Simulated assay, not measured.
Amino acid sequence: MKAPDPKDYPNSMAFLQDITSKLRGPEGCPWDKEQTHSTLVPYLIEESQEVVEAILKENEEHMKEELGDLLFQVVLHSQIASERRSFDLDAVAKDVAEKLVLRHPHVFDPENEQLSSADEVLANWDRFKEKEKQLRQKTEKTKSILSEVPETFPSLLKAEKFQKKASKAGFDWNDIKGVEEKLTEELNEFLEEIRGIKDPSSNQIRIEEELGDLLFTIVNLGRKLGVSAESALTRTNSKFKNRIEYIETRLQESDRKFSETPLEDLDILWNQAKQVQNKTSSNPLEEKQSITSDLIRVLSSFIVWKPSKEAEWPKAFLFTFQSAEYSLVFSAFGSMTLLPNSDPWGRKAQPIFYLNLSDPNARIWEDLSGNSYKTGEDIHEAILGSIRSYKKALAGSEPI
């Protein structure tokens, strides 16, 4: 097939659409032709995350590239849908354009009330969304107890949220023993699926299903123990990364390559890395730094922020909530401070919310009122609650 010439198309979108169609066509790419909406989900998530990373790094050249990759996902999904005569890219664009016009009457309807601030726009937007939601509910089934859990949450976090919602509705084990028994059951079922299999791909669906059940139960066990699976895995990822980097450093010192080093030697270096890590973690200050870094990583799953300081410590991050900017500052000594970026009362940015690492062993954080927090989710909710209280006080012109 001859490569298409961009000059033959009225615009770049038409060029991209035609390329995508050809990739899915009879003479196209075997991989692209096999894809479905479901198989593309991991790539859609990955491309979205890479866009976010480029934005946070303020690298617009990289951002342009990643937005292109994300756009291809949109075009590819639309192409797949058009082949099934469900919808096409034009319908996608038309729907969102009509929605934007509908939700911006202050812009597109001269007779409508004019809105002068971003907060008013957001409030108006929420009213329209609520109306649309009510219209949908008239035709949809009764709302699920799980419907408020965002689909965009990472899978471990989503599993934990599902379980908490179900537990509040009364669907839960009475004690941890039930979860332990379930974990044993799921582990045995998983092992049964993989025993004696020479080619895992021959039973991929069942293996994936059983592995998912096992992971879901592990998350449930963590929830019962008051441990966030997302936080726990983040911490383990960090340990693994540090140990691999230690091995790489040692190998570089002896001018050796990782891929060419015998497994026995790698095991020795791995154990050395563990010993070094254990010695490091015995330092109280470094342990607090490690726990604080874990909290930063967990909160980054909830808050889209960007670093506002280059220094190693304290670490500061800037984020926007309800059209206002705030900073979260984390100290090396185990504290987190939430500050407004504006100072309407002239008090030089008095903290809105403060947390202190009260118990490093139990990884418990405590605010100035004595309330304890252990999970990133709880801390995130406390941050947003503090901002709402702060804004309410601002509206009443009374300092909090």
Score class of each variant (00 low, 15 high):
residue 1 M to C: 06
residue 2 K to P: 14
residue 3 A to F: 13
residue 3 A to N: 10
residue 8 D to I: 02
residue 10 P to H: 07
residue 12 S to Q: 08
residue 14 A to I: 03
residue 18 D to G: 08
residue 18 D to W: 03
residue 19 I to P: 03
residue 24 R to V: 02
residue 25 G to S: 14
residue 29 C to Q: 10
residue 31 W to C: 00
residue 32 D to I: 14
residue 33 K to G: 05
residue 33 K to Y: 02
residue 34 E to V: 07
residue 37 H to N: 13
residue 38 S to D: 12
residue 39 T to W: 09
residue 50 E to Y: 05
residue 54 A to W: 03
residue 57 K to L: 14
residue 63 M to I: 05
residue 64 K to E: 12
residue 68 G to H: 06
residue 71 L to Y: 01
residue 71 L to R: 04
residue 74 V to T: 07
residue 76 L to V: 02
residue 76 L to A: 14
residue 78 S to K: 01
residue 79 Q to D: 15
residue 80 I to P: 04
residue 82 S to N: 08
residue 85 R to M: 11
residue 87 F to A: 06
residue 87 F to Q: 01
residue 91 A to G: 00
residue 92 V to H: 00
residue 98 E to N: 12
residue 99 K to V: 10
residue 100 L to N: 12
residue 101 V to R: 02
residue 102 L to F: 13
residue 103 R to G: 03
residue 106 H to D: 15
residue 108 F to N: 05
residue 110 P to V: 06
residue 114 Q to R: 13
residue 118 A to F: 06
residue 120 E to M: 07
residue 122 L to R: 14
residue 122 L to A: 10
residue 123 A to V: 11
residue 128 F to S: 07
residue 131 K to N: 09
residue 132 E to N: 11
residue 133 K to F: 13
residue 134 Q to Y: 01
residue 135 L to G: 01
residue 147 S to P: 00
residue 152 T to S: 15
residue 158 K to L: 09
residue 159 A to H: 08
residue 164 K to N: 07
residue 170 G to I: 10
residue 170 G to D: 09
residue 171 F to T: 10
residue 174 N to F: 10
residue 176 I to E: 13
residue 180 E to R: 11
residue 189 E to Y: 12
residue 192 E to K: 15
residue 193 E to N: 13
residue 195 R to N: 15
residue 200 P to D: 11
residue 204 Q to C: 01
residue 205 I to P: 00
residue 206 R to I: 09
residue 213 D to R: 06
residue 217 T to A: 09
residue 218 I to A: 12
residue 218 I to E: 07
residue 220 N to R: 08
residue 222 G to N: 01
residue 229 A to S: 11
residue 229 A to V: 02
residue 233 L to M: 11
residue 239 K to D: 07
residue 239 K to T: 00
residue 244 I to P: 01
residue 244 I to W: 02
residue 245 E to Y: 06
residue 253 E to W: 00
residue 253 E to N: 07
residue 257 K to R: 09
residue 259 S to H: 04
residue 262 P to T: 06
residue 262 P to Y: 06
residue 267 D to C: 10
residue 276 V to Q: 06
residue 277 Q to C: 01
residue 281 S to C: 00
residue 282 S to N: 14
residue 283 N to G: 01
residue 283 N to Q: 05
residue 287 E to N: 14
residue 294 D to N: 15
residue 294 D to S: 14
residue 295 L to I: 09
residue 296 I to Y: 03
residue 302 F to P: 03
residue 302 F to D: 02
residue 303 I to S: 04
residue 304 V to M: 08
residue 305 W to F: 12
residue 310 E to A: 15
residue 311 A to K: 13
residue 318 L to M: 11
residue 323 S to I: 06
residue 324 A to K: 15
residue 325 E to T: 11
residue 327 S to H: 05
residue 330 F to P: 04
residue 330 F to H: 05
residue 330 F to K: 06
residue 336 M to Q: 08
residue 342 S to M: 10
residue 343 D to V: 12
residue 347 R to G: 12
residue 348 K to P: 00
residue 348 K to N: 15
residue 352 I to W: 01
residue 356 N to F: 03
residue 357 L to S: 03
residue 357 L to W: 09
residue 358 S to H: 10
residue 362 A to S: 14
residue 364 I to V: 15
residue 364 I to G: 06
residue 368 L to F: 04
residue 371 N to H: 12
residue 376 G to V: 04
residue 383 I to N: 01
residue 387 I to T: 03
residue 394 L to V: 05
residue 395 A to H: 08
residue 396 G to R: 10
residue 398 E to W: 03
residue 399 P to T: 02
residue 400 I to Q: 12
